[in-house]
Design a protein around this nucleic acid. Structure first.
Length: 589
RNA sequence: GGAGCCGUGGUGUAGCCUGGUUAACACGCCGGCCUGUCAAGCCGGAGAUCGCGGGUUCAAAUCCCGUCGGCUCCGCCA
């Protein structure tokens, strides 16, 4: 053997139990903590499985005790000794291994450690930037490792499920072609083709469709994707999708198999029994009732339309808004009874922050309403409001009105109320489908239609006839999965008819030449017998984040980047040498 | 591209608003004592150009401007 000798472990630290008493064991691990009593020295020894106390008693081994005296935090050691039951009064109930200890007879330092830049201790609050610079130390902490373990279990469970359902895991290229539409591409210069660039995939979309045309029938991949856009707590430059595609299916086939996958996932990973099928709500309904396309129904507080109550109102503000074809919508605030003035004011200022012109609040007091606008309302309107909103004494009701889009304000206010007033929901997990998205959105800046999902999404059959006359009314065979108000996945049935695909490209304003250049290979493939197909992609990072109860996907990524795209550990991105640039035929400023 | 918050020994914070002694506290670190601790204890010690640059002032951690870094959000993310 080269280098220092060390004894290989026979057990993991966290695995020892009272049944192991009397065993001769060897442990390898990191020194978590040393407690030196002058005579006896206690070490908490840590490995991936957990902690165990090892005891160095000079009466058992003077040599080992001497080694223990040299030990410091994060030293890697090997020690051999006997598992002993702790004296009854020194059992530690907070440790899984707290009934035992290892009485050390031989010990070796495998490698020493500098004093770490922060305490390697669960729960200690350390600046995230410092943690990411020393992520290899950060991950030694159980509470930092745990989300990564969970993520691994999610990935394995999904793999096993899809494998059992006949899906083939197939890898697609990382060095691929830039496509129009969608996010900004990361590009990679080509040495062999000077002046040309690969793009890193934003998703394996085109390749998985080609796999369907290839007759693969069912494909999946846990695929890395790249989008050069600004980051958020739930967005990184590179992220991972659970990507899959199926042939000869309709939306309900895919939804059924995904329902089964999530039941299986939550059962195996979370020990939670979800009941499928999961609810489906149309995009239109979601926007009406929640003001967003990713509703979280756990909190109630559904938005309703109260315009009809004010059809003949004397309240000038509402009347003029209704005359302009505007609407009056609102919701009842759960968890806020007999509010303080300060709470009502906070709602108004939140509404203003969200861009509302104003917000009308109302509090039921007997048969009347306390409200800044109460004096403008007739008793009939008051009665109708109380009844329609089902307000009980002291409850708060919010109304927003306007000719414009009220959804951002209403959805934002609902979020605010959830955060500040709402009681904990009965259900911990709300998983649902949002379906029937519009096929196109109108891009006001570019004055053209854009795909709501992507250009290969199939219009739904029942709205297909509107495609030429009123594209915005066309819905698509698409579906998003939403978990607790977070979009975790989205997909669609794809177009497999080249002529229909042509029409879509035209509506999107993509010229024939551009289509040929960018998607020619796909269009050509469609001409060789394409099966009907569709699929979905889930954000593994977001899913793992939610399941781990974290607020940022950085917590479920081993080596994340900062908001400005830096890897604080490796200092990437970095400049490259003139020689490298020259080889790539790139001039840099 | 824009808005907001943050940056003080190794770590986490206080001090900043209202400028003025030696920049305080806890943890960690180093040394000593200590044979049953597990947030070990007791005694002692070292350790801070207050992110960086400029300005105002007799005097700046503190006020002003700029800049760098981190975070949150808007735009952006088919």
């Amino acid at each position: 053997m080269i280098g220092r000798e060390w004894k290989k472990r026979t057990h993991h630290c966290g695995s020892l139990r009272i049944e192991d008493v009397g065993r001769d064991v060897v442990l390898n691990g990191w020194v978590q903590k040393r407690r030196d009593h002058g005579g006896v020295i206690f070490i908490d020894l840590r490995d991936v499985s957990g902690l165990v106390q090892v005891v160095f008693n000079p009466e058992i081994s003077a040599a080992a005790h001497e080694v223990a005296g040299e030990l410091r935090g994060e030293y890697v050691i090997s020690c051999r000794g006997t598992v002993g039951a702790r004296p009854a009064d020194s059992v530690n109930p907070r440790l899984a291994t707290g009934e035992v200890e290892v009485r050390v007879e031989e010990a070796d330092v495998i490698s020493a450690s500098l004093t770490p830049p922060f305490e390697i201790q669960e729960g200690s609050d350390v600046d995230e930037a410092l943690r990411f610079r020393y992520r290899f130390l950060d991950m030694r902490r159980r509470d930092q490792l745990e989300p990564l373990i969970l993520r691994s279990r999610v990935a394995v469970t999904v793999r096993n499920f899809l494998d059992s359902r006949g899906f083939l895991e197939i890898e697609t290229p990382m060095l691929t072609k830039s496509t129009p539409e969608g996010a900004r591409d990361f590009v990679v210069p080509s040495r062999l083709q000077p002046g040309k660039f690969y793009a890193l995939p934003q998703s394996p979309q085109l390749f998985k469709q080609l796999l369907m045309i290839a007759g693969i029938d069912r494909y999946y991949q846990i695929a890395r994707c790249f989008r050069d856009e600004d980051m958020r707590a739930d967005r990184q430059l590179e992220f991972t999708q659970i990507d899959l595609e199926m042939s000869f299916i309709e939306p309900e086939d895919l939804i059924a198999i995904m329902d089964a996958m999530f039941v299986d996932l939550f059962r195996r990973v979370m020990s939670v029994e979800l009941s499928d099928p999961f609810p489906q709500i149309s995009w239109q309904e979601a926007m009406e009732a929640y003001g967003t396309d990713r509703p979280d129904p756990r909190w109630g507080m559904e938005i309703d339309d109260f315009s009809s109550i004010f059809s003949a109102t004397d309240f000038k503000l509402f009347r003029s808004i209704l005359e302009e074809k505007g609407r009056v919508r609102g919701f009842k605030v759960d968890g806020l009874i007999a509010p303080a003035r300060r709470e009502l004011d906070s709602l108004v200022s939140e509404a203003q922050r969200l861009g509302a012109g104003g917000l009308v609040w109302m509090v039921r007091e007997g048969d009347s309403l306390r409200s800044p606008v109460a004096k403008f309302l007739s008793q009939g309107e008051t009665d109708a409001l109380i009844e329609k909103a089902a307000m009980v004494e002291g409850e708060v009701f919010l109304l927003a009105a306007g000719p414009g889009d009220l959804n951002p304000v209403l959805a934002g206010l609902r979020q605010y109320c959830i955060k500040n007033f709402a009681p904990q929901p009965a259900e911990a997990w709300a998983l649902l489908w949002v379906i029937d998205f519009p096929l196109f959105d109108w891009d006001e800046n570019e004055k053209r239609y854009k795909s709501n999902h992507h250009p290969f999404t199939s219009p739904s059959r029942r709205t297909l006839e509107l495609l030429d006359d009123d594209p915005l009314q066309v819905t698509s065979d698409s579906y998003d999965m939403v978990l607790n108000g977070v979009e975790i996945g989205g997909g669609s049935i794809r177009i497999h008819d080249p002529e229909l695909q042509d029409r879509i490209f035209k509506i999107l304003g993509l010229g024939e030449q551009e289509v040929e250049e960018k998607f020619g290979f796909l269009i050509e493939a469609f001409r060789y017998g394409a099966p009907p197909h569709g699929g979905i992609a889930y954000g593994l990072d977001r899913l793992a984040m939610l399941m781990a109860g974290k607020d940022s996907i950085r917590d479920v990524i081993a080596f994340p980047k900062t908001q400005s795209g830096l890897d604080l550990m490796t200092a990437a991105p970095d400049i490259i040498s003139q020689a490298q640039l020259k080889e790539l035929r790139i001039r840099s400023t």
